[in-house]
Design a protein around this nucleic acid. Structure first.
Lengths: 343, 343
DNA sequence: CATTAAACTTTACGCGCGTAAAGAAACTTG
DNA sequence: CAAGTTTCTTTACGCGCGTAAAGTTTAATG
């Protein structure tokens, strides 16, 4: 079938009876050539499975079609899920997504930015580590490469930020919990890595104040990204020492809650709304596994679809307007309360 | 600081007082130049943060330092975890890992292979979808690109396979369960996507035969990668209809088991070893979350570390021997039984 | 059918680097 | 210190493609 070996675009242009610049134009944008020409190229493409050399292509293009996606911790199903959606959208739009995982480490994050810089991406979707991030490295990166931040905002950096409205998460859970039972304490890590955690704590305090209740923070120790384990140990300790001060617990995020539920189960404490239950537990994020916990977790859900859509849409706007936006926008999506069995 | 703008290797060689070919050699292998020369380059590197253009670099190199990593479903924490370790090893070895996610779709998997081909990687670590994979596409890919398969084997393809010994998983769980209680039924999807599932079923049947028990397969319906949901629905159905035929359930994998436990909890069935328990549930994989289920899950664990190590070691051997190995090796690691509370 | 715009061909240059060859300079060794 | 070896410099070419300019063909329009 593939009799004459196609070594490059020159060869391929020859066998399809066109000139190389025309073929080059086609690969840049198939609709930029006459339909009849396009048909000829695509017919040839069927027969000889030629693909332009990625490296040579990107070397001279002012703007590549590469898109960088950087997340702080890919083993967290929350990010895995968001990335899955974003990646697909990019491919559908003819872009080449390159996925990077900071693995919770600032040095790694900075190294990724360096790599990314030399990939000359048309745009980057970047969820920073947060508190631990090397701000100056990110700042310099954002100056050179069109970047959309998501999940964790860093004030003023990047061309735009897309994320969820932490206030909306907390106000809904706190409102629901106070309305249906005891006011909740707030269960979180002492030194959270993610800025969203801080926003949630502040929103909790504010919300409790507003409703006329005394805020009560249960800050557990532990660092890193093993949130479930940290939550479990923290919960065991808090439950044994009785430091919760209420029968209602609002966890900062679902992964901590998963640990909490595990601890409660081990201690024989039944969690839920029923009269026979010792505790109510609610949380935030709608982690992919939160519907399978025991009991299933009442939580405030990210609008995954809307966030992903907006992130990608912002990226496209950014690319189309040549890498810079008029002004930095911050888009926050509200949460949706999901009532399950845990509270 | 960076007064003269460094635009390319030429410029950089000039300011570091060396010739471009020498600098080029350094970037190819820092130890290939005299220590004093290396020091000069690295000093200059400190001052002017030059990085060679990735695209130009790879264009002419016969062998790039790129490594492709392809997994079937990244939102599965099992893969996320393995990838995390593998990625790190590659970076430490001076290779550039590129991560790809097949997202459970054969077309996507094939497209990734095409992309990967043009990335001219030194080697590829590839966990295929399995049954759904386009075998001929993979075969052709493996002919062109040095590939190590992992997780799912495809007979004869790739230069090597590294995975876990399904027989070892099942024999340990079956032995343990039969020894300590009723013989287990085997809970699995009717049409599993992954070939490991088939091997586990066969090992179960074989093991039960050998121990003189009647094998009993509970095959639930459902397709795709939402294993927890499939397991939960299947478990609800099986428990309501009483089709298990025993109080002991061995799930094909942890994600199904997570669904099963959720179903049991909702039905008020207590799972565990105690006298007050209605069911025992065990499984395979040691999924990152299996220690946080309620009750915590008794399971047979992959030796994540050993598998990752061996995968990467095989890749390095493959690269060093120029992309081909003398003979195709298949390395299987045994499981380790982890007794927790569910059985 | 003439006019004009769009699409194409030809020609040519450049991107940033790999890499090879030949000779000069710097290190080793006895 | 001479001989040999390693490392470096100089020179030069090529990779596969982007892209620009100028000229030619094709299609669209009145």
């Amino acid at each position: 079938m593939t009799n004459p070996k196609i070594r490059n675009m020159e060869d391929f242009a020859a066998i399809s009876g066109l000139s190389r610049p025309t073929v080059s134009k086609y690969f840049h944008d198939p609709s930029s050539v006459r339909p009849s020409t396009r048909a000829r190229i695509e017919a040839a493409l069927e027969e000889y499975d030629y693909r332009p050399n990625i490296f040579a292509m990107n070397q001279n293009r002012k703007l590549t079609k590469n898109v960088g996606i950087v997340v702080p911790y890919l083993a967290d199903p929350f990010f895995a899920e968001i990335v899955r959606v974003i990646e697909r959208r990019c491919v559908d739009a003819g872009l080449s997504p390159f996925l990077f995982n900071s693995q919770g480490e600032p040095e790694y994050e900075t190294a990724i930015l360096d790599t990314l810089r030399s990939l000359k991406p048309a745009g980057v979707l970047f969820a920073p580590l947060g508190r631990q991030s090397d701000k100056s490295a990110i700042e310099s990166f954002c100056r050179d490469v069109p970047t959309v931040l998501f999940d964790s905002n860093i004030e003023g950096l990047g061309e735009a930020f897309v994320g969820s409205d932490n206030r909306s998460f907390v106000s809904q859970t706190v409102e629901y919990l106070t309305r249906t039972g005891e006011p909740p304490c707030f269960f979180e890590m002492k030194t959270p890595a993610n800025p969203n955690a801080n926003k949630r704590r502040l929103a909790y305090i504010d919300m409790m104040d507003r409703l006329g209740f005394e805020p009560r923070i249960v800050a557990i120790s532990g660092s890193g990204w093993a949130f479930e384990e940290i939550g479990k140990q923290g919960a065991l300790k808090a439950l044994q020492e009785g430091t919760l001060g209420t029968n209602t617990v609002l966890c900062s995020n679902d992964r901590l809650a998963i640990g909490f539920l595990s601890a409660a189960y081990e201690m024989g404490l039944k969690v839920g709304r029923g009269a026979d239950c010792a505790l109510r537990v609610a949380s935030h994020d709608d982690h992919p596994f939160s519907r399978f916990t025991c009991p299933s977790l009442t939580t405030a859900a990210h609008d995954y679809g809307a966030v992903s859509d907006e992130v990608v849409a912002t990226l496209f706007r950014l690319i189309e307007s040549g890498g810079r936006l008029e002004r930095r926008t911050e888009t926050l999506f509200p949460a949706r309360l999901i009532m399950r069995d845990s509270a």
